[in-house]
């Protein structure tokens, strides 16, 4: 049967411990809040930068120029192959006529295309891949078809762009990882101090026969509470700064890789909240376990 007296005792312990040493609790919450702000700003910038890079990379397309004398059977075979290839995201056919029309629009007034006797532009198939990194391989494979005169995807530049994207993404991940470790260490050390201040109490609990988990639980919940309050405080600060500064950034510093619409504030907030709560909980658990195991 559920004993409300025991539940009340447990929560009273958690709340009493949390509110007893207010400066200590505020230090822990403040540390968590500052760590969450730092982490939040960086995660935000990284997600935004990633999305800018992705937009750039997604623009990479493969143009397959068909031979003018290609046999309809070969073109059909090529089209069927493209339709069946799981790496292909979309295919668009641009006829010679459409191509010259497009060029005419582009060069309007700068060059008189009527001077040409024939249309030099080939029929083209424009392919977008699901993963831009597949484009060089696709180009090589499709280039072998007898219907194909040439393929073009901005060779050289595309590879560099893809490589840059990979490196930057990895570097961002490493920095996020380091920042996470630093945040966790700072939070751990602060929360450890709050546990250290209560060594005596832990000793008394053990002497009267409390089991290891009875000793740990109030501390773990206190850690969760510190993490939660700190993360909420940090998120509030971030939200205030975001709403007052983000529009100004986008307008005044358009060259920055800053892309507010690409980041979901809800998603980021949930991530930061989870990090705050988890680090708070684990820090408390690790700190109190050290004293519990001593006895």
């Amino acid at each position: 049967m559920w004993d409300w007296g025991r539940v009340r005792f447990f929560w009273a312990e958690v709340v009493q411990n949390f509110t007893r040493n207010v400066p200590m609790a505020l230090t822990a919450i403040g540390t968590v809040a500052i760590s969450i702000i730092l982490l939040g700003v960086f995660l935000y910038l990284r997600t935004s930068f990633d999305s800018v890079m992705k937009t750039l990379v997604d623009q990479v397309a493969l143009s397959i120029y068909l031979r003018d004398d290609a046999r309809p059977g070969d073109v059909r075979a090529l089209a069927a192959r493209l339709a069946a290839d799981p790496r292909v995201d979309s295919v668009r056919y641009v006829s010679k006529k459409q191509a010259i029309e497009h060029l005419r629009q582009t060069l309007r007034g700068q060059f008189n295309l009527n001077l040409l006797n024939t249309n030099p532009l080939p029929n083209t198939i424009v392919v977008h891949a699901r993963h831009p990194a597949d484009i060089p391989v696709l180009a090589q494979e499709l280039g072998r078809s007898p219907a194909v005169a040439a393929v073009n995807y901005g060779q050289g530049i595309t590879e560099k762009l893809l490589r840059a994207e990979r490196w930057l993404s990895a570097a961002g991940l490493i920095v996020v990882g380091l920042l996470l470790v630093a945040t966790a260490l700072i939070m751990y050390n602060t929360i450890r101090l709050t546990v250290f201040a209560r060594q005596r109490e832990i000793h008394i609990m053990q002497l009267v026969g409390a089991t290891g988990w009875t000793v740990r639980w109030p501390f773990v919940f206190e850690g969760i509470l510190s993490g939660l309050c700190g993360a909420l405080l940090g998120l509030t600060a971030l939200a205030l700064v975001y709403h007052s500064l983000a529009p100004a950034f986008v307008v005044n510093l358009p060259f920055l890789p800053f892309h507010p619409t690409s980041v979901s504030p809800l998603h980021l907030s949930l991530e930061l909240l989870t990090i705050g709560v988890l680090v708070g909980m684990l820090s408390s658990l690790l700190s109190v376990s050290r004293y519990v195991e001593v006895a």
Partner: peptide
């Protein structure tokens, strides 16, 4: 003595029962 200074006499004594999971009516 090793008493908890933030708890009353009653709470200090009850504490030994509560941390060992005693039911509230026993306390």
């Amino acid at each position: 003595f090793k008493l908890l200074h933030n708890k009353t006499v009653w709470e200090n004594v009850a504490y030994a029962l509560q941390v060992t999971g005693a039911r509230s009516r026993d306390v």
